[in-house]
């Protein structure tokens, strides 16, 4: 579904994303994890057309989309959400979602109708007439998701939809993401919350300082020394092994 190869982006002297290649197969949920500043959001921004890469390419459903503007990429069925939620504050929840629905529906009535259906799906039915700026953090995260979903995407890029949610809200959000996958939408998500990653993703890519350092099933990568070092500091893996050996003595 998504094929990224050799993607690179520099900001001045900083190598934000360095030669990253990855694949997201159709129908699955793939996660991208890594410490703060690893380049995850920059990678998403390049895939969705918000930032032009310095080199490398992005292919979506077998078609090269590198360098296309965001609205054309969205029209092809690849849509992103934002880490920092970006609601249309003074519009109602229904109107917010309808903007996404308008991608394929020209009529106002049809788009609002579609928006109501989507809101129902993500559990926002009772909030339809609420102004977006009056929503809670959890509500805004859902709205972000609902708007993206209303464009009828084939691939959804979710940038930290769990951040700032309490455990109950997170459980609900995990269910929503699973439901989206079950509707046939491929999901590629950035996530810090490991519990969410473990229960959602089939495959995980780990990014650190712009480079991919590991990939595999969620259980596997948690035991990879490079990943432990990226999160806990240089030498951490060796210390942990030493401690484990110590403890088993």
């Amino acid at each position: 579904m998504l094929e990224v190869s050799g993607l690179t982006k520099r900001f001045g002297g900083l190598l934000a994303v360095a030669d990253v290649s990855l694949r997201v197969p159709e129908g699955g949920i793939v996660a991208l994890v890594g410490p703060n500043g690893a380049g995850k959001t920059t990678l998403f921004a390049m895939v969705s057309g918000f930032i032009a890469p310095d080199s490398g390419s992005v292919a979506f459903a077998g078609e090269e989309i590198t360098g296309l503007p965001p609205h054309l990429i969205c029209a092809k069925g690849l849509v992103r959400t934002f880490q920092v939620v970006q609601p249309f504050g003074r519009l109602s929840v229904c109107e917010n979602i309808a903007v996404g629905a308008h991608l394929h529906l020209a009529g106002r009535k049809e788009a609002l109708e579609r928006a109501r259906e989507v809101a129902e799906k993500v559990g926002m039915g009772p909030l339809l007439d609420r102004r977006a700026q009056a929503l809670t953090v959890a509500g805004r995260k859902r709205l972000e998701l609902a708007r993206a979903l209303a464009t009828a995407p084939r691939l959804l890029l979710l940038d930290e939809v769990m951040a700032g949610l309490n455990p109950t809200e997170m459980g609900a959000m995990i269910d929503v993401v699973k439901a989206i996958r079950d509707m046939g939408v491929t999901v590629f998500l950035i996530e810090h919350v490991m519990q969410a990653v473990a229960s959602l993703a089939e495959r995980v890519y780990v990014l650190n300082q712009g480079r991919l350092i590991a990939d595999g099933a969620p259980g596997e990568i948690a035991r990879t020394p490079a990943v432990i070092e990226a999160y806990l500091g240089h030498g951490a893996a060796a210390r942990m092994v030493a401690q484990a050996v110590e403890a088993s003595r």
């Binding site: 969705s48 918000f50 503007p69 965001p70 609205h71 969205c74 029209a75 849509v79 992103r80 959400t81 934002f82 970006q86 609601p87 249309f88 504050g89 003074r90 519009l91 109107e95 903007v99 996404g100 991608l103 708007r147 993206a148 209303a150 464009t151």
Partner: peptide
């Protein structure tokens, strides 16, 4: 109206 409220979000949702 979407552009007025948030131009980047509008672009992400396929608005030219």
């Amino acid at each position: 109206m979407a552009i007025r409220e948030n131009e980047d979000a509008a672009r992400a949702l396929g608005v030219d």
